Amino acid sequence: MAIKLRLDEDYARKRNELAQRVGMSKHEAVLHAIDEEYNRMTHRQRVTDALNQSVERWGDALEQLGQ
């Protein structure tokens, strides 16, 4: 699917600089940025889930020790 991406001057400059620095096309730079944010988002969720599980486990253990 194709979309038209409208960028203001600042975002266009950043996209152009990113593409130039990593040696890819402007299109690839946008896809790369999407991939990077998606990976960060899913990583944060996995870390949050793991932390919540640890808190539940340790919370139960500490509660039992306190009894």
Rank of each mutant, 00 (worst) to 15 (best):
R21S: 13
D35H: 09
Q45A: 05
K26H: 08
L65W: 10
A50W: 03
A50V: 09
A19F: 01
K14M: 09
A61Y: 10
L5V: 15
G66H: 13
M1A: 15
Y11M: 15
H32V: 04
D60G: 03
V22W: 02
E63T: 12
G59I: 08
E56R: 02
G23I: 03
D10F: 05
A2H: 09
H32E: 05
W58I: 08
E17N: 10
V47N: 00
L51I: 11
E36D: 10
N52Q: 11
W58P: 00
H43L: 11
L5K: 11
L18S: 04
L5P: 03
R21T: 07
N52Y: 05
K26M: 05
A33F: 04
L5T: 13
Q53L: 06
T48P: 06
E37W: 01
A2G: 11
L51E: 10
Q20S: 13
R40I: 01
Q64R: 15
A2C: 06
N16S: 15
M24L: 09
Q20I: 01
T48E: 08
R57N: 12
Q45T: 07
A61S: 13
S25K: 08
V22H: 07
H43F: 09
L62F: 04
H27S: 14
Q53Y: 03
S25C: 11
G23C: 06
M24S: 01
A2W: 05
G59M: 01
L51M: 12
Q20P: 00
Q67P: 05
A33S: 12
V55A: 05
R40V: 00
R46H: 04
R13H: 10
V47F: 08
V22Q: 07
A33L: 08
D60E: 14
M41A: 11
V55W: 08
D49C: 00
L5F: 01
A12Y: 08
E37Y: 03
A2D: 11
R40W: 00
E56K: 07
L31T: 01
I3S: 06
L51D: 01
G59S: 06
G66C: 03
V22L: 00
Q53G: 13
R57K: 15
K4T: 15
D8E: 10
A50R: 15
H27R: 07
G66T: 10
Q64M: 12
Y38V: 15
E36A: 05
L5D: 08
L51R: 11
L7R: 08
H43Q: 14
L51C: 02
E56L: 12
L18G: 02
R46P: 04
K26R: 14
D49L: 04
D60V: 14
D10N: 13
G59E: 01
T48G: 02
R6S: 09
I3D: 03
E36H: 06
H32F: 10
L62S: 09
E37G: 00
Y38S: 06
D49H: 10
A50G: 01
L18A: 09
V47S: 02
E37R: 14
N39Y: 06
S54I: 12
V55L: 07
A2K: 13
E17D: 15
H32P: 00
A12G: 09
H43D: 11
D8A: 04
R44H: 09
A50M: 09
T42V: 11
E36C: 05
Q64H: 12
E17Q: 14
D49F: 05
A33K: 07
H27T: 15
A29W: 02
